[in-house]
Design a protein around this nucleic acid. Structure first.
Length: 210
DNA sequence: TGCCAGGCCCTCTTTAGGGCCTT
């Protein structure tokens, strides 16, 4: 399997939704996939010194004591950046994780130029009849396994990787796209829903000709 | 507790409003 077939699924736990308003990451996890298989994992709590609101602790189970005992955020992010390298990434609601990825790497003095694809946008394209496009709801809807504690970074990154696998599987088996790589996923998520059938047909035809 | 932001997406739209999704 070629290195070019790698995609890294990432998930952050944070103190809130807005890094521009002072929210910081509390935990990051990255699940490395290659040809649809999980080949490596990265996970760490991180300490930014920013207190975690009580309702966030209730949601995630991550306490101020836990992050106080964790390595500094800059060290964790430097390790995460090395782990990812130039691998393209995917996240569930990628705009959120991309903002924290960029903000935390910038704060750590690292570059952050990885491309992101979004499993929310892809799921809305491919599964418009899903009752909900929340990560856990989609996992349950597909009957995919839940591993670990929901709303912890590694469990959510694992679920995002599973959802990505399901998306690529359906693109191949149901839509006839032979190699739904990261660049294709980004084209697909940007395609207006109305144009989706034509987009997929064009992809099939161009692949057959090639 | 759940607003905070940002972006997508739908509609009773486009000179707007509101739901969804992430924590």
């Amino acid at each position: 399997m070629s290195h070019a077939d790698r995609i890294a699924a990432i998930d952050f736990e944070t103190t809130g939704v807005s890094p521009t308003r002072g929210d910081r990451a509390t935990e990051v996890a990255i699940v490395m996939t290659e040809g649809g298989r999980v080949v490596d994992r990265f996970q760490s709590l991180m300490n930014t010194g920013v207190p975690i609101p009580p309702f966030i602790t209730q949601l995630t189970g991550i306490t101020n004591a836990m992050v106080a005992a964790a390595p500094p955020a800059a060290q964790v992010m430097a390790d995460a950046a090395r782990f990812v390298g130039d691998t393209p990434m995917v996240a569930h609601n990628a705009g959120f994780d991309r903002r924290f990825w960029q903000a935390e790497l910038t704060a750590a003095g690292c570059a952050a130029d990885q491309a992101f694809a979004c499993t929310v946008l892809l799921s809305r394209r491919l599964y418009p009849d899903a009752p909900s496009h929340k990560l856990g709801s989609l996992i349950d809807w597909f009957g995919l396994p839940r591993t670990g504690q929901a709303h912890r970074a590694l469990a959510d990154a694992e679920m995002a990787a599973e959802l990505l696998g399901r998306i690529r599987h359906d693109l191949m088996m149901r839509h006839g796209v032979p190699r739904p790589d990261h660049a294709f996923l980004r084209e697909l998520q940007a395609c207006p829903a109305r144009q989706l059938p034509r987009f997929l047909q064009t992809r099939r035809e161009s692949t057959v000709v090639a």
